[in-house]
């Protein structure tokens, strides 16, 4: 009875309520409910799908290891690897000048504006869409896949390379410029030693990414393992699909290990 009735606390709470954050969370929940209803994503469909999934998985196992299928998969996988190697090589060669041209601290406005715009266009389309256009332009086959992934490589490597160049230490550039060295020597003596390690890291990362994408451009006719995968899928040969998936995942894991090593060598 005699206790103070004041409900107020002596100290402010250690973790005060953050109302804007709570409102944002509530907004996300409301959006989720709204979007699921718009998309007709219902629990009934999901449960029906789980039944299908059981059927689907039972048709996938055991993976098909027939020698003729494996030979087909081998050819496709080798082509995917070649697409990734060539696209990374050519794309990185093109990204080097493009990235330098898009660096604000090296290039004049008239150069870096267009270079940035070109990189943005390369980045904005998914490799599969670019592959569709190249299939129309140069016909079915690996070349369309290589060209599509070159565009993707330029969009990623050139953009990040330009950022790396912009972050470098300007003192060495000034020192070399003070000796009246021509622009090419400034690049070779002051810029490259600072940024090459990061550039190699980007290249290695993009090779992994290109390998992943090269398994997919075949779906639209760009060569590689995608074509046999899509054919097997359309024929309901799900056991072959599983074999291909296992091989893709294994190859990509192997490449990630290798690229991890390469990155450590260059650090």
């Amino acid at each position: 009875m005699s206790a103070p009735a004041a409900p107020g606390r002596l100290r402010p709470p250690a973790f005060p309520a953050n109302w804007p954050a709570r409102l944002a969370w509530a907004g996300l929940v409301i959006y989720t409910i709204y979007a699921t209803s718009v998309l007709d994503v219902t629990l009934a469909r999901f449960i029906a799908g789980l039944g299908n999934a059981g059927h689907f998985l039972s048709r996938m196992f055991p993976p098909n290891m027939a020698p003729d299928k494996l030979a087909l998969i081998y050819t496709g996988m080798v082509e995917s690897l070649q697409i990734a190697v060539l696209a990374t090589f050519a794309g990185v060669l093109l990204s080097l000048p493009l990235g330098l041209a898009a660096a604000r601290n090296l290039a004049p406005v008239a150069v870096y504006g267009p270079a940035r715009a070109f990189i943005a266009i390369c980045r904005s389309f998914h490799p599969v869409i670019v592959a569709i256009l190249f299939v129309k332009a140069v016909g079915f086959g690996a070349l369309a896949g290589v060209l599509a992934l070159i565009v993707a490589t330029m969009g990623f490597v050139a953009k990040l390379f330009a950022e790396v160049v912009e972050e470098m230490n300007p003192k060495q550039v000034e020192a070399v410029r003070a000796t009246a060295a021509p622009f090419l020597n400034v690049l070779i003596m002051a810029v490259f030693p600072q940024v090459m390690a990061r550039f190699v890291g980007l290249t290695v990362y993009q090779f992994d990414s290109n390998l992943r994408n090269s398994t997919m451009v075949g779906i639209v006719g760009g060569g590689g393992i995608g074509a046999p995968l899509f054919t097997a899928y359309q024929r309901f040969d799900y056991d072959v699909v599983l074999t291909i998936l296992i091989i893709i995942v294994a190859l990509i894991m192997l490449c990630e290990l290798v690229s991890g090593r390469v990155r450590r060598i260059f650090q």
Binding site: E79, Q82, V85, L86, G139, F140, G141, L143, G223
Partner: peptide, 11 residues
Amino acid sequence: SLRTIEVIPEF
């Protein structure tokens, strides 16, 4: 890769 990749020149 350059030597063994299949490119159809007619296309």
